[in-house]
Design a binder for these strands. Structure first.
Lengths: 168, 168
DNA sequence: TTAAACTTTCAAAAATAAATGAAAGTTTGT
DNA sequence: ACAAACTTTCATTTATTTTTGAAAGTTTAA
């Protein structure tokens, strides 16, 4: 396998993986492309390599920057903007976790808390089970969310590393 | 908020959360419905509560059973089949992690290994960076996948709990 | 073996999400 | 202030995913 072929395969795979996890394909592909580029890439080049329109490139780059995992770069003497990806993987994971938590998990927790604290009819086993199960779910999601938050710390933490080794 | 309203809100929220994570809405909704039901539910009732077609119900129930998080139940003297969800949340998380790992992460790792082991032109910084970055990604994803695999163990493990507390 | 009661399948339709591209907006140099 | 060089926006189009529903399949009881 040659470099170009490998690069393309990587970008496609990353795009497919992204869509399976609710991230749009182009967004994941752009990110993949930037991740493996050793220098900043212009919007023109991104459009060209991925065969996408200017509007698509622009919107997905904006989204990636909103996630905090892609940065704009200005080159001296160049009017155009260039883009680079966060390449430190712990940092990348940490930012993705933070964003997903903020955008999806926190709002879900809010609803879970609401529905798990309704008043129930004393006699209804059905309603009791609902409150019991949603309360457990609330606790569980909260715990999972905290773990996600602390993942980076954990990875950098010697005790964490030790535990990881023991667990393997 | 009354029970029915709360139940509906929960089902809708769980469905929305599912689609953001690449799980189809109906599948997540059916799962939500079964999670908070204190007894097994017939396909008829699922169709009715979620206002979906028989085919849709059937296909998504099959998918949920393939994931191993919903079970068929037979009631004495009833021709119809009833369904229940895995209600233990650690078990649920563990099964979801296992399935996603098998279906998505393992294949991605295979590709990552392939593309990170190409022969590179000695003089090309671009190609060297590609191999370096994809290798790092391979290691990272492998590590993350292992953590996912071990999550349940970890949750049940006293040392794990201790570390969780320290990390907070 | 038949038929009733139920479930599954899958081609077509509908719904949803993503991409396009032209027009509007911005920035920079002169 | 102007215009060139570039970026962003968003209504429309396109692609993808999901849902439907009728036909085919299966199981059970008589």
């Amino acid at each position: 396998m040659k470099f170009k072929e490998a690069k393309n395969k990587f970008v496609q795979t990353w795009g497919a993986l992204g869509s399976q996890w609710g991230i749009n394909k182009t967004m994941a592909q752009i990110h993949a492309l930037l991740m493996v580029s050793n220098e900043a890439v212009s919007m023109e080049d991104i459009m060209d390599e991925l065969q996408i329109s200017r509007g698509n490139a622009s919107m997905n780059l904006r989204a990636l920057m909103d996630w905090g995992i892609v940065y704009k770069e200005y080159k001296a003497g160049e009017r155009r903007e260039f883009f680079t990806a966060e390449k430190d993987l712990d940092e990348l994971a940490s930012k993705i976790a933070r964003e997903r938590s903020k955008r999806e998990i926190k709002p879900a927790l809010k609803i879970l808390k609401e529905v798990s604290t309704i008043e129930v009819t004393e006699s209804s086993a059905e309603e009791k089970h609902f409150v019991d199960q949603t309360s457990k779910l609330y606790d569980f999601v909260l715990k999972a969310d905290n773990m996600l938050d602390k993942m980076t710390e954990f990875n950098e933490n010697w005790l964490g590393r030790l535990v990881l080794k023991i667990m393997k």
